[in-house]
């Protein structure tokens, strides 16, 4: 089966119908396991005390904030190149989920930053690029709602998504580009020396998997809703013209 067969809305609806409950259930299970493990069964950090427990929400949310934009970029590129409507709708559906993840990352970061850095906010490279990414999410969603013609909206939001991708990349690598600011470098690394201790690493890995599956489940639910709304709009137009 070709990947492009999913460009057919009827096929997409048929294939994704059983995936939604499966992804939702699995994501809930992984989130419960990861968060209970991290919150109740891991020790405090010797420097950060119990605030290290914020790590289990902050890191997965920040990861998904960037990856959601990546998913939108992929959907936008497919729309611009191949004009498949479902891909534009996937990008549209991912934005509210991505903005929620970005908001969680900003909120938990501010709450964590206050006791550790002595401030809720600093114009640090990573924090600032994340704030700009958040504003891009809002602009992207506003643009979708501001334009009546769906194809024009898909075109313009896709271009905005391409531009915003610069900040999605900056959000991830800003700490490496500018070796300054309060935010530390990446907490997770394939290099064992640089990675967090295993006792914190395994529960966050489970939570990250839960966030990924939750994102996929929500994007599928929202894309299916968008497809239904398109069909509803077409039927309502036919009713009016009859």
């Amino acid at each position: 089966m070709s990947l492009w067969s999913f460009a057919n809305p009827a096929k997409f609806m048929k294939v994704t119908a059983p995936l939604v409950p499966a992804l939702s259930g699995l994501s809930l299970l992984l989130l419960v396991i990861g968060l209970v493990w991290g919150f109740f069964f891991t020790p405090d950090d010797y420097r950060q005390g119990s605030t290290v427990k914020i790590f289990y929400l902050h890191v997965p949310a920040a990861m998904m904030a960037i990856n959601a934009w990546g998913a939108m970029l992929l959907g936008s590129l497919i729309w611009l190149i191949r004009r498949h409507h479902v891909s534009a709708l996937v990008a549209k559906a991912a934005a509210p989920v991505g903005v929620t993840m970005t908001l969680i990352a900003l909120l938990t970061g501010a709450i964590w930053g206050q006791p550790m850095w002595g401030t809720w906010w600093a114009w640090d490279p990573r924090l600032t690029s994340f704030l700009i990414l958040f504003l891009f999410y809002l602009g992207y969603m506003a643009l979708w709602t501001a334009i009546d013609d769906p194809d024009t909206a898909a075109d313009l939001t896709s271009i905005l998504c391409l531009v915003g991708s610069v900040f999605a990349v900056l959000s991830r690598y800003a700490v490496n580009f500018w070796n300054q600011g309060l935010h530390q470098g990446a907490s997770l690394s394939l290099d064992k020396e640089k990675n967090v201790a295993d006792i914190f690493f395994y529960p966050v890995l489970v939570t990250m998997a839960g966030f990924v599956l939750l994102f996929l489940a929500l994007v599928l639910v929202r894309t299916r809703t968008e497809i239904r709304l398109r069909r509803l709009h077409a039927l309502q137009l036919r009713e009016r013209m009859a």
Binding site: F39, K53, I54, P96, T100, I104, L107
Partner: peptide
């Protein structure tokens, strides 16, 4: 667990995150 002097921060981070996740799930 005993969250010590950071109990408010940790609780607020979890409560805020759960509220936002709950809101997007419910809205969707």
């Amino acid at each position: 667990p005993d969250l010590g002097k950071y109990a408010f921060e940790v609780t607020a981070a979890y409560a805020g995150s759960f509220a936002l996740l709950g809101a997007i799930v419910f809205a969707s």
